[in-house]
Nucleic acid binder design. Structure first.
Lengths: 193, 193, 193, 193
DNA sequence: TATGAATGAGCGTTCATTCAT
DNA sequence: CATGAATGAACGCTCATTCAT
């Protein structure tokens, strides 16, 4: 399944042939169909697995007590670092997730749900911060969550897959550096210190 | 070509059959090949066209004189509004561009270049703002540009294609509202007024 | 039509597209169909024309009075020289005729008839030579005619189209040299002086 | 593969559809592509196989010690008989080989090489005969070899495929008769006893 | 006469899936 | 559990031919 994941990520869903996967795995074509129901099924399994792992990372990342703005920024930074580290060591999974899954409807769906779950996790935290008076209650929390996840997705895409401007130096950064800079932008924007 | 664009966007590159396109266009299969060299070629043409249009929007959007922070925010808001309006009236193009093009290498390439060009446009503006002393020269301008484009891509994706959390209310916003809120986040972050 | 002939000869019937022919001729596709009924028709016309010309050469080549063996050899040599000269200045036609016409039945047929006509011309001469007592009447005249035409076809094929062993030096010979050597072989065989 | 060979020979390369071959073989279309890479590939395999067989025949046919002219003629007759017998029981192969392969370049190439190899085999024998003083050393050995192969190709073409003059009675001959008459012509020419 | 856009039947090839062993 | 030959529906593309202008 790691083989399939890698090939789906690298070549895309459609360009990945079952014959490629089994050849790389060193088994016969028929064997594939003993393990997996179909090509779509294995892709789905992969995405589902990924979703679980990703949500674990988010869930564990956001353990923190209320506190000062400083605390909040640090908490966010920690979560982002966790996410980026996860992405770094699961780059094929992320490539699949962020790449869109080749347009196969059930896969698209599963990916969309994963993204939604991520967004929701951030939304809960924004809401909590509002309750705690750390963020103004006039803002559109959902939209802010969407913006944050956009940020995360964009950073990972550019960091690991080289999309975006070439030689922007982003590829050389560590997960921690990215987390720090992203968190600063998240809370203070361009004008932030 | 609009037909092809729509189907590529809606169904994905692979799921779109030439026979679908010509059926919708009401011509024979062979006619397609009189106008376009191949399936890949038409997709490429579409993407190239889109790139040109998009860069036009960006180029026109960023006409402005230096000034106060207020000016800068308004200028950015104007650009974002322009982009969002363009996306709204070219949703299929944006869907294709943001969807990744189905993993066909030359198309992927063209899309990546489009994104890079966008990022570069924003980069130039950040640099100008730094020269003018409106932004601190300690920041990583490239990374900031990447973050901003990530924001834009994320917003459009969620606004027009419903990716992200469902019923977040984002779909109901106007281009101008989105531009305003996104610009505020861009400059002031979560903590911004 | 010369264009079509050249392309048929060089690329083969199937590999030659109408679009190639008209492109080289500098006219539109539709124009072709005003001049010729179909692709097959033009090939047929070409072959028919060629047959006529070839038979003319044979007919003119065999004008001679009876005489000694010496006369006979010289007459044959003259005919062969005529044929080889014709082949040299009609190489595309010969290529088409000797190449088999790409397996299209009516063309195959026309070519076969051309060959048969050639064979028949030689047969008449062998018969006359037998009547004149210059050749023994025990031989199978038809078979001898077939052998002679085989010789001619083989020589032309190797001389002009390079088939057969490479660098055999045959390409450098003149039509007259070929005629002389071929005639000697025709009458005296390998052991001939 | 025999099926493909027969159809290629009978109908020509282009007129032979994969669907014809598989229909005759009683398998599905996809099955063809399990066994062969492509239509061109199978034709190439066929031709290569044929070349090997043909060269075997030639190699085995020319085992003989030097000797008198009588010996030489008999040896040649034996070789020719071997070739004609082979052609008779491999008529489709010969049809493909002598027909030119439909103008597909790699196939044309392979056929040309086969012919060249044949010519070379005869060339070696002529050279040996010259060394042994059985043939004058003034003759152009390459050209003579070319003539002999031309003879062989012409005879087979007319014998098995009916090209050439109709009802010439050649079709009724046996391989041995052909070999005998062809060998006589080879050594003594038209004027030979 | 000439154009060139349009036609559409037909072909080679691919590849996910099945199944007898 | 595993094999790998077999399947067949489906697709992209070609190209000789037509026809309105």
């Amino acid at each position: 399944m790691e083989i399939a994941l890698r090939r789906f990520a690298k070549d895309g869903y459609h360009a990945t042939k079952i014959s490629d996967i089994v050849a790389e795995a060193g088994v016969a074509q028929g064997t594939f169909y003993w393990h997996f129901k179909s090509k779509e099924a294995i892709a789905l399994e992969i995405v589902e697995d990924g979703r679980r792992q990703l949500l674990d990372v988010i869930a564990q990342g956001y353990r923190r007590e209320a506190g000062t703005v400083q605390d909040m920024v640090q908490a966010s930074e920690a979560l982002l670092a966790g996410l980026f580290r996860f992405a770094e060591s699961n780059r094929y999974l992320m490539e699949l997730l962020l790449g869109g899954g080749g347009g196969i409807e059930p896969i698209r769906q599963a990916i969309a749900e994963t993204r939604a779950a991520m967004e929701n996790a951030f939304l809960q935290n924004i809401r909590r911060a509002i309750e705690l008076g750390m963020l103004p209650d006039t803002i559109d929390a959902e939209f802010r969550a969407a913006l944050i996840v956009s940020l995360i997705e964009g950073v990972i895409t550019r960091w690991l897959f080289g999309l975006g401007a070439p030689d922007s130096g982003i590829a050389a950064k560590t997960a921690e550096q990215l987390a720090s800079e992203t968190a600063r932008f998240e809370f203070f924007g361009l004008l932030g210190i």
